[in-house]
Design a protein around this nucleic acid. Structure first.
Lengths: 103, 103
DNA sequence: TCGTTATATTGCAATATTACGATTTGAAAA
DNA sequence: TTTTCAAATCGTAATATTGCAATATAACGA
């Protein structure tokens, strides 16, 4: 893992709101109500529901989600009008492993 | 672990210079020349040597070290004129464990 | 096509972070 | 006591982060 990416990922998780997003997405069905289009687990959670739970303005939520996507920790999936977000468990596992060896 | 402290620790490690400090202090003898007062492993590494390796100005190095100490990841020890820094392996292990469960 | 809904982008303000020079403090040496 | 050296603190500049309002874009529905 190259250092710039590692650093970007560490910065991505070093924020309470983004930590909450990652936590909620571990078990979407437990934290979000069912969606019409897109399965909570298969496709991920709609940005609207995440923003609702964060109690932040829509652009701010979008910004946090972008940081997590750019860090490779979330995968976005556009379905119809919505963008659903789910964890990239493989990248997250790699990050944790890197923290284990490099910190 | 309360969230403010966890967040402070994540922010502390989310910086390339501070990551390097933590990395070097894992095996001080490998990365630093012997010191006159204070054992590299027992007492830790002198701030001067750390700053030298970072190629940063003294106040900047002191600031980085303070952030790591405030996060509980480094332990400072004043001996004579110098302050030596070593890792707090227990706190670091606790942090890694928290990342494992919360990220 | 026109209006509505969901998301993304832009621009901006407030605050935090990172860096440095200058100065102060603390301990030791002259 | 005075000087010297290591570290800490202060003040400040440059940059990054975090938040929001306004606006643009994309996708749908009438």
């Amino acid at each position: 893992m190259n250092l710039p990416e590692f650093d970007r990922q560490l910065k991505a998780i070093a924020n309470p709101h983004r930590l909450m997003i990652l936590g909620w997405l571990k078990d979407p069905a437990r934290h979000f109500r069912p969606q019409v289009d897109g399965d909570l687990v298969e496709d991920g959670v709609c940005a609207l529901l995440i923003g609702e739970k964060l109690s932040l303005a829509q652009p701010t939520t979008a910004q946090h989600l972008k940081i997590l996507v750019d860090a490779g920790l979330l995968v976005p999936k556009r379905i119809r009008k919505w963008t659903f977000y789910r964890r990239d468990e493989e990248r997250i596992a790699t990050l944790k492993s890197a923290i284990g060896t490099q910190v």
